[in-house]
Every structure is written in C-alpha cells, then in structure tokens.
C-alpha cells in the first residue's frame, strides 16, 4: 500500500563502520519519536548531491524498538550516483531530512517455511526478517548470505548466532559467482522467499525461480534501482525530436538529464518498477544497462525501450524519443 511521504527533521546520533565499506547510521527524529515499523520497511532520506537535493531509500536494519533510533546501513559505492558518498560524509550531530518508515517488502506470516536471500548490502532488510521469524516457533528459516568476502559483510556474527547451521555463507571473491540454481533445493512449494541484493544477483535468482518448479509469486524482492550490470559512466543521449544532445553524467539518470534540459517525461516510482518513464530507443552503441524490473527479459533483449529513471548506457551512446508529439 502506498502512503504519502511526510518529511521530518532528524539528527544523526551515531555512526559506526560495521564492515569494510558499510557505515551504520543511527537517526533520531528531532522530536525523539520514531514511528513503529515492521521488518522490510525503509525510510527515504533527502541527500545532497552536487548541491542539489535528491531522495534515496534505505532499508531499516533490524526490528522496531520503541525509543530507539532508526538504523540504516550504507555501502560506499565509488561508482554510485552520489547518495552513498553523501551518507558517508555525515557525522554524529548532523541534521538530515527523513520520511516516515514505509514497507513495500512486507513479510507474510501465512506459511511456516522461509528462505531469506541476501547479497551484499541487500542484507539490510533481511536481517530484521531473520530476527522476527526466529522469534516465532515452528518455522523453518533458511538463509543465504552472499558477499565478496568476510570483511565486506556486516552482521555476520549476529546472523551466525541467530541462525546457526541454517545460515549459508558464500564468498564470491574466493568462490566465484553463486550458482543460484542450488537455491531450488532449499525450497518447497510452500516456501516464501525474500530476496535483496545487487541487480545481477537478483536477476539470477529470479531466473532460477522462473525456470524452476515453484510459484513465482512466492519470491519477493526489493530494489531501490541502485545497481546495474555495468558501473555507471557518463554517456551522450541524442533526442532528434528536440534537436538536442545531452550528457548524462555518471551520477545522474537519463530522467534527470532530460528534466534538466526541460524535456518533460512522465514518471512515478523512480526505481524502475512502474514503467511510466519508458522512452523509445532509436539507436545505440555500446551496451544498454537495463536496471528496471518493469520490462521482461525478452523485452530488455529487444532494446526497443528503456526506463529513463534507472537504466543507462555503458561504453557507448544512445538516441531516444520521448512521447511528446507537439509541433
């Protein structure tokens, strides 16, 4: 269910590096009152990038406790669009603007069999789910946590003591990309699967489920449109209808670049889910990095359209058309 965001002022009350590139940030609303949330919730944070405010979503780490700050964990992505750099620049005492918690990744309680899958910073919504589920009796809860290496994976010890042998760990620096087809053996028809991680990993798990024997809708996942198949880089966009050529900098999206050029594009979710910001691809060179969850794999393969809010071009440039038909 979608709720209107209400923005409040808040204070960074503590920061702590909890893994090699992961900063845990505790945030308390100025009035001291956090709002109750269920696991899987996130807050939106107003971040400053190149002097302009933008909105980023961060999952809340762990379960709600009254009179306790919100906790988020941010991975520093050198190739990011700038959100993580801003978050890493915060110090205790800094003021920020945040939204109320919202849950688009809610845990269902109508089964007794769960498989949690987290890769990289995708651990943030999953750890609370593991805690909530482990507190109930009579459940089977298995979890896969994949990351580059131990040093980059926060909350390892906590999860090991919580889940014991039901926690499977995978270190891709040493073991290579995780073979997601192995996940099918951990599930049954009644297993609910909660997945969060970088795009290539999520795509692999989704593909496994699409090809596998179980209901696709038992696989739930969340993404904030922050990752793709290629590191973000600058690229050129030509829009012949407006006789325009614009540069999309690596920390900007096509949608932002179009708006900066005063070209109207419809959009809503800005995380590659709703499909409203789709534009026609007329020509391209290099690779289209489809980062959305709106187009199907076969649609992405056709490269006829892309979601301007998240998708990018790597090692090339692109010519597009928008839906404007005025003269």
């Amino acid at each position: 269910m979608r709720y209107r965001n209400s923005w409040i002022d808040a204070t960074v009350v503590a920061i702590e590096q909890v893994a090699k590139s992961v900063m845990q940030i505790q945030i308390l609303p100025l009035n001291g009152a956090t709002e109750c949330y269920t696991v899987g919730s996130h807050i939106d944070v107003s971040v400053l990038i190149d002097g302009k405010t933008e909105i980023r979503s961060y999952s809340l780490v762990g379960e709600y406790e009254s009179n306790t700050p919100y906790i988020i964990a941010v991975k520093l992505l050198p190739s990011s669009k700038g959100g993580s750099k801003y978050m890493w620049s915060l110090a205790a005492g800094n003021k920020i603007r945040i939204s109320q918690p919202t849950n688009n990744f809610e845990l269902s309680h109508n089964t007794n069999d769960y498989l949690l899958i987290a890769a990289g910073i995708g651990i943030t919504p999953i750890i609370g789910m593991a805690k909530t589920l482990k507190r109930k009796t009579g459940l089977t809860v298995k979890m896969l946590y994949a990351g580059n290496n131990k040093k980059e994976m926060p909350f390892l010890e906590e999860l090991q003591s919580l889940l014991g042998v039901d926690l499977m760990l995978h270190y891709s620096d040493a073991q290579g990309f995780y073979n997601t087809t192995k996940l099918i053996d951990l599930a049954s028809a009644k297993t609910q699967i909660y997945l969060c991680g970088p795009l290539p990993f999520m795509n692999a798990v989704r593909k496994t489920w699409e090809d596998g024997p179980f209901e696709n809708s038992n696989l739930r996942f969340e993404t904030f449109g922050a990752s793709g198949l290629f590191a973000p880089q600058d690229f050129l966009v030509k829009i012949p209808r407006f006789d325009l050529q614009i540069k999309v900098k690596k920390n900007k999206t096509i949608l932002q670049a179009l708006e900066d050029a005063h070209i109207d594009v419809m959009y809503d979710c800005k995380k590659g889910e709703c499909g409203l910001c789709q534009v026609d691809i007329l020509e391209y060179s290099g690779d289209i990095d489809h980062r959305d969850f709106f187009f199907s794999e076969s649609e992405k393969g056709e490269n006829d359209k892309l979601c301007a809010c998240v998708s990018r071009v790597a090692n090339g440039s692109i010519t597009i058309d928008t839906s404007y038909r005025g003269v």
Partner: peptide
C-alpha cells in the same frame, strides 16, 4: 498491458 509485475504490488493480508 505489461509483461512483468511491479515487485511492490500487494495488498495487506491478515492472519
């Protein structure tokens, strides 16, 4: 009119 389903799309279910 779309090939995929928005991953956020659900209504609350009650025990």
């Amino acid at each position: 009119s779309q090939e995929t389903i928005n991953p956020s799309a659900c209504v609350r279910s009650y025990p």
